[in-house]
Structure formats: C-alpha cells, structure tokens
C-alpha cells in the first residue's frame, strides 16, 4: 500500500510540475519554455498510446511512428485543403482540431487493426520486425507522394482551431495538449484497472495460461493494439499542429525508437512513465543539446544505465515495483 501511495505522490508531482513550469514561463514571458512543455505533453500522449501495447500487452511495436505520422498527415492534409478551399475525397478540408482528431484516431486505429491482425500472428523479434516493416512502408510512401510535399513535407500555415481558445498562443496550445494528456492518462488507468486490462496484462505474462482459462490472446491483444495506435495517432495530429509542419520524418524508424526510449526511461507499463520519459528526453535534448551536438551519446549512456540498473525506469526507481491485482 505504501508503494502505491508513493507512486500517486510522484504522479501528482509530475503532473503538477508539467503544469507549473509553463505557467511560470507564461508569467515571465518565456514562450519557448511553454512550447517545450507542450512538446513534452504531446510526446507523452504518443507514448501513453504505445504504453498500452508495450507496457500492458508486452507487444514491442517498433513501428508506432506509423500512427504518429499518420495522425500528423491527417492534420496537415485537412488544413491544407481548408487553406486552399479544395475538397479531399469529396469532403471539404477542415481547420478544426476536434474533427481532425476524430479522423486521425479512426485512420490510425484502422491501420493499427490491419497491421495488428497481420503481425500479432508472430511474436518476439518477428513481431518487432513486422511492425517496423509496416512503418517503413508508410515512411517511403509519404516520401514519394508528391501531392502533399513528398520529402519536403507539408507546412500548416495556420494552426487548426479549437473552440474557445486561440491556438496561435503558446499557452492556449499548451492547455490543449495538457488536457488531452490528462484524458489519455485517465483512459490508460481505466483500461488497466478494467477486466480488459486484467486480461491484457495476464496475456503478456502467460498467454498459454490465458488461453487455457478461455481468454483468446489474439483478440484481446488486437483490441489493445488498435487503442494504442489510435492514441498515438491523436498525438501525431497534435504534434503537426504544434510544429505547423508534417514530414516523412514523423514516420521514420527513429521516431518509433524515440517512443520506446521514452517508455523505457520513464517506466514500462507505469501510468506516468510516458510523462517522466518524455520530460527526460526533451530535457536532455534541450540542456545537453545546447552544450554539445553529441547529446544523444549522453542519452545513450542514461538509457544503458536504466536498462542495466533501473529496469522500472524513473517511476520504478522512485516508487519500486508495480503493484498488481
């Protein structure tokens, strides 16, 4: 019980800090810091998505950049058509975030369903390679698709709109990202505690046992994989709006790797692991990136230390092993 309380305190501290720092930046007129916090929040949402597949379900997807980039392209393409006043697939473009998010989630969820249905027949290294292969297909497809910029990417000239807020202001954009992050964390916690989560985590630990008591591993895993892809796709749409730019780089395998790194740094399967991990990653990039262009070397050392000495990531290091049902 003590471990449990410790974890809630840590979660509250992380959530509080992620709000307090940009609030301070708002007061002292430091928009760069606000945008940085927004970036952390959006990367954390993407990683919350991956954490459903990887953390709860043990499905090591090395291709989540596919859903991230797909979400990004949905936002970019919708904004592009809204800007030029041209239809897309017979529909008008839109510059409203809410419908864009819905479309991004449906599209990335559908693709995750297809990829999952094919790749979940394998496991281990084969699963990793198949998910990577699908993401690479998406990467090269966007690279060679001239209609939306090809390798040059697609700019979003004006951020898409959110009712009641001015998305051009960094603070408003942060509030949107922070709100969605809290919602996605709530969804993760809800899934984990529900019967579905109990089944998914059991399958991760012992799929044969799960089958022997009548829970089909394939179906539960597939649903987990789809939900995972949907949330990562949503984050992609938000990231495109934050940077006002979509490019094939969002679908690159390094992006998939980054999401995995975030989860490992923060704590696999832990509720606030993605938040801690995204903060560490972006913090490293900004702090050490200012000192040396080889900041990834130092990140690599930290990752090595985590894998060797602190398997539970930052959350695990502070609060100990996860408690289960």
């Amino acid at each position: 019980m003590d471990r449990l309380r410790k974890e809630w305190v840590l979660n509250a501290v992380l959530a509080g800090a992620l709000f307090a720092v940009p609030l301070w930046a708002l007061m002292s007129d430091e928009p760069f810091i606000i945008t940085l916090a927004t970036r952390i929040a959006i990367l954390a949402i993407a990683a919350v998505g991956l954490n459903i597949a990887l953390g709860l379900g043990g499905m090591v997807s090395f291709g989540h950049a596919l859903y991230f980039g797909l979400g990004g392209y949905v936002a970019g393409i919708a904004a592009h058509h809204a800007f030029h006043g041209t239809p897309v697939l017979g529909l008008p473009g839109t510059n409203q975030m809410l419908p864009i998010w819905a479309i991004a989630m449906v599209v990335s969820g559908t693709l995750a369903g297809i990829v999952g249905a094919l790749s979940l027949r394998t496991s281990g290294i084969f699963f990793i390679m198949i998910t990577l292969a699908f993401a690479q297909m998406g990467f090269f497809f966007t690279l060679s698709w001239p209609a939306y910029g090809g390798e040059d990417g697609l700019p979003i000239f004006m951020r898409n709109q959110f009712p009641g807020l001015n998305t051009a202001r960094p603070w408003d954009m942060f509030l949107i990202a922070y709100g969605v992050l809290l919602l996605s964390l709530g969804l993760f916690a809800m899934l984990r505690a529900a019967r579905f989560g109990a089944a998914l985590m059991a399958i991760r630990q012992n799929p044969d046992r799960a089958a022997a008591i009548g829970i089909s591993p394939f179906g539960i895993r597939l649903v987990g994989f789809i939900l995972s892809g949907m949330i990562t796709g949503l984050a992609g749409a938000m990231m495109a709006d934050l940077t006002r730019f979509v490019s094939p780089a969002m679908l690159a395998w390094t992006m998939s790797g980054e999401l995995i790194v975030i989860i490992i740094l923060g704590g696999v399967g832990r509720l606030f692991g993605p938040v801690a991990g995204a903060a560490i990653l972006v913090g490293f990039e900004v702090f050490f990136g200012g000192l040396t262009e080889h900041w990834q070397f130092w990140l690599g050392l930290v990752l090595l230390a985590v894998v060797l000495f602190a398997r539970g990531g930052l959350v695990g290091l502070i609060t100990g092993r996860a408690r289960n049902v």
Binding site: A199, I215, I220
Partner: peptide, 16 residues
C-alpha cells in the same frame, strides 16, 4: 472467473 463469465472486453469498471 472473469474468463468463465466471458466478459473480458469491458473497458470501464475497475475489476478489483
């Protein structure tokens, strides 16, 4: 027991 009841696709209520 949950498997016996056949209700593993429940996403909302905490099982505990």
């Amino acid at each position: 027991l949950q498997a016996r009841q056949g209700h593993s696709y429940r996403f909302v209520w905490p099982v505990m």
